[in-house]
Design a protein around this nucleic acid. Sequence first.
DNA 1: TTAAATACGATACGTACGTTATCGTTAATC
DNA 2: GATTAACGATAACGTACGTATCGTATTTAA
Lengths: 207, 207
Amino acid sequence: MDEIPVPAPARGRGRPRSEESERAILDATRSLLKERGFAEFTIDEVSRRAGVGKSTIYRRWPTKGTLVFEAFMIEFLAELPPPDTGNLRGDLLAVLRSWIRAVKGTVTGHTLVGLISEVQRDPELAEVWAEKFVAPVRAQHRLLFERAIDRGEIASTIDVEVAMDLLFGPAYHRLLQRHLALDDRFAESVVNTILDGLLSAKDVSSS
Amino acid sequence: MDEIPVPAPARGRGRPRSEESERAILDATRSLLKERGFAEFTIDEVSRRAGVGKSTIYRRWPTKGTLVFEAFMIEFLAELPPPDTGNLRGDLLAVLRSWIRAVKGTVTGHTLVGLISEVQRDPELAEVWAEKFVAPVRAQHRLLFERAIDRGEIASTIDVEVAMDLLFGPAYHRLLQRHLALDDRFAESVVNTILDGLLSAKDVSSS
DNA sequence: TTAAATACGATACGTACGTTATCGTTAATC
DNA sequence: GATTAACGATAACGTACGTATCGTATTTAA
């Protein structure tokens, strides 16, 4: 083994890591994802395009998945500004629509799918994924519900974690299973059902 | 190429395919999934255990994913009897609980995760998956909602497809992201919210 | 100024595994 | 008995991740 890859070098004795190389690697990663997609993405090609040895890549990221994750993460969060429409329905609709716009038919979306697939087989990535993606995204969404509780829109007794899963679970489901389109009608229908329930639109002619 | 792998040979000239080999392959697949899991599953090991040449495997299944899928599918559907409790709430709760029981901490569950991951990179499997898994499972679930509409429990105008995604999307979400446990409380909370909505439990002290 | 430490790019290597190809053999039909 | 196709065994192919090696460059410390 060369050296311990994970902890940052702080400032030690030898030659410092090149920030320029790091930028070049991330740029090459992004352009390669754009041109070829996650499936045909290889570390060798990144190395070639960035004009960088493979050791320089592996010194920074332990696996292919963690590299792609970092390049992905940089823009994903930037594309999803936290909404504040003043009421829960508006916030949920906004956040779900933004997500769909960021993901449907985009490089970001394909990369997201590839990463979720990769998370299931790369334990190093799984750790980063839980800590740097799932946790912060959920923290952001949690706020929407907590604000609604503060406003008195919903009861403080509701299970916010389940509510978040009800909001995004169906979206990820359609993204991964591809059985039906992710469109605005879908977003509205999801939000309406979560808030009002299926029974609210019930016919009068019930038993 | 040897021969066309997909269409069944019907009954032609040469030596017929051995049903015994086919059984041995599927048995070896199941036991290997049980012992090692999807990640360490290899075709070579199946070939070895089944006492069968690799060509005999590839003659029947075009990719590793499609083989695992068939072995998986045989028991998955068997573990999920369609419920009929007489009302929608009972049916939804029953079907979701059964799914959780079949999937949580089981070989079936790990294989399901592996297959969903594999579907994203194996187009042959993706086709089989859509046709032989997603479609029939959804058809079964669609019945639950259609019966409820016939009973007058819910309006005929609701979007059943979205309703199905709301029921299982959160469950698949937790299965794949592993952020929270799949338990009975979760199942109940999901079903209650889908039927009643978050606003139904609203505090009286609202703005 | 020199030694130690570390990163650098280039490149070869090891490894794993899915998939294909080859081959002599066997079991069926015509 | 000729033809056809499946059989098991085994080798070969192709790909790509990740590691190792090496001579060089850049930094800090003595």
